[in-house]
Amino acid sequence: MPPRTPDPDTSLAAHRVAPERLRGRGARSNRAGRYERELRQAESDGWDIEEDLPVLRTEVSEERARKIITYNSSPDLPFDRSVNAYRGCEHGCIYCFARPTHAWLGLSAGLDFETRLVARPGAAELLAKELAAKSYKVATLAMGTNTDPYQPIEKRYGVTRAMLEVLREARHPVGIVTKGTLILRDLDILSEMARDRLVRVGISVTTLDPVLSRRMEPRAPAPAKRLEVIRRLTEAGVEVRIMTSPVVPGLTDHEIEALLEAGAQAGAVAASWIMLRLPLEVSPLFRDWLEEHYPDRAGRVMARVREMHGGKDYDAQWGKRMRGEGHHAQMIGQRFARAARRLGLDRALPPLRCDLFRPPVPRGAQMDLFG
């Protein structure tokens, strides 16, 4: 079914949830997904009786997927395959470009994305099966490209760790992106894989301001804790890249140099950046958030965003969507490049090893006598 024509952005107000129910959430509203035929919103029943509604809690359902490795051919991405342990993300980052994927589940990119999550408890078995296929050709597998593999529910489900165990056994290279401190739980696996140059980690640090971080990424670890994760991973021998992503013009772009310096001091060996991206439902959600928390800067932030995307909130063209274009985008890129060069974070890292790969043996299969 083709997406319906979105209702006006002003209608977000009609789908807002009472503030007292939003403890630790990024979005304020829950407008229906773009594939839904009907819009739903709360209306007074006319009875003059006060009713206390509960704080929104995280709900988790389980999904038994048929495949776990997703392939892409995007020239903007440094990898061609990825796995995701979860759908939705409790970190609640208001700027998350993955929010619109919840529409495929018939859910909202707003509060549903943060509160109605999907776990994939059979992911490790699927991964082993796909890696064991005779047609499989090894290349670095990206983990955490859509939603964070170390968001809070990983502590309960352990899907990410189970997949890492498969990758360690298969000696398969993996690149991980996360904000979560729970990655330190898996130092035993990561340090072992790092010795054979089979793993690299990217830690996203968007701002050093704890107040801004708590508003913008309400359930993600504080910036200081993420820097400590970089330090701990580095001490364990794991190569870490600090990711100053996304850069929010007019809100966080002044921190580029400070972020890179903090990352370098913590032990990061490389750095990367991506400009703020506001596809589909993310744009009205982000603008609503700006008006709530930074009304004095909202107009300036969005003017900069549109300047870098040809007058639009977002331009999905390859080669433009990640960095934007125009004078301001070029200036941010130049500042980043200068700071990274000064701090030694601009060096190209050697590729992870693919020559050690050994396909997993599926459950019930006979072991190779001479393996």
Rank of each mutant, 00 (worst) to 15 (best):
R4Q: 12
P6W: 04
L12T: 00
V17T: 10
E36W: 00
E38T: 09
E38N: 02
A42S: 08
W47I: 07
D48G: 05
L53Y: 12
L53D: 09
P54A: 07
L56Q: 05
R57W: 00
V60Y: 07
S61L: 13
E63A: 14
R66Q: 14
R66S: 14
I68L: 11
T70H: 10
N72I: 13
S73F: 12
S73W: 12
S73C: 01
P78E: 13
D80F: 13
S82E: 14
A85M: 15
A85P: 10
H91N: 11
G92K: 09
C93E: 09
I94M: 14
P100A: 08
A103H: 12
A103S: 14
W104D: 12
L105M: 10
G110R: 09
R116H: 13
V118R: 14
A123F: 01
E125Y: 01
E130Q: 11
L131I: 11
A132E: 02
K134I: 00
Y136T: 05
G144D: 04
Y150C: 02
Y150G: 02
Y150Q: 01
Q151D: 00
E154H: 05
K155R: 15
Y157M: 07
G158S: 04
T160V: 04
T160A: 12
T160K: 04
P173H: 10
V174P: 03
I176M: 03
T178Y: 00
R185E: 13
I189G: 03
I189S: 02
M193S: 04
D196T: 03
L198Q: 02
L198V: 06
V201E: 08
S204Q: 10
V205Y: 08
T206E: 12
T207S: 15
L208T: 08
L212G: 06
A220M: 07
P221S: 10
P221F: 02
P223N: 10
R226S: 06
L227K: 06
V229M: 03
T234P: 04
E235V: 11
A236H: 09
G237T: 08
V238H: 07
V238P: 11
E239P: 14
V240H: 01
V240E: 03
I242Q: 02
D253Q: 06
E255D: 03
I256D: 09
E257T: 14
E261H: 08
G263M: 07
A266R: 03
A266T: 03
A268I: 07
A270R: 06
I274M: 14
L280S: 13
E292C: 05
R297G: 05
R297N: 03
A298V: 11
R300Q: 14
V301I: 15
M302I: 15
A303Q: 13
A303H: 07
G311C: 00
D315P: 00
W318Y: 14
K320P: 00
M322K: 04
R323M: 11
G324A: 05
H328Y: 15
H328C: 00
Q334A: 15
R335Y: 09
R335V: 13
F336K: 05
L345G: 04
D346A: 14
D346M: 02
P350C: 06
C354Q: 11
L356C: 02
F357M: 11
R358K: 14
P359T: 02
P360C: 11
G364P: 01
A365V: 10
L369W: 10
L369A: 15
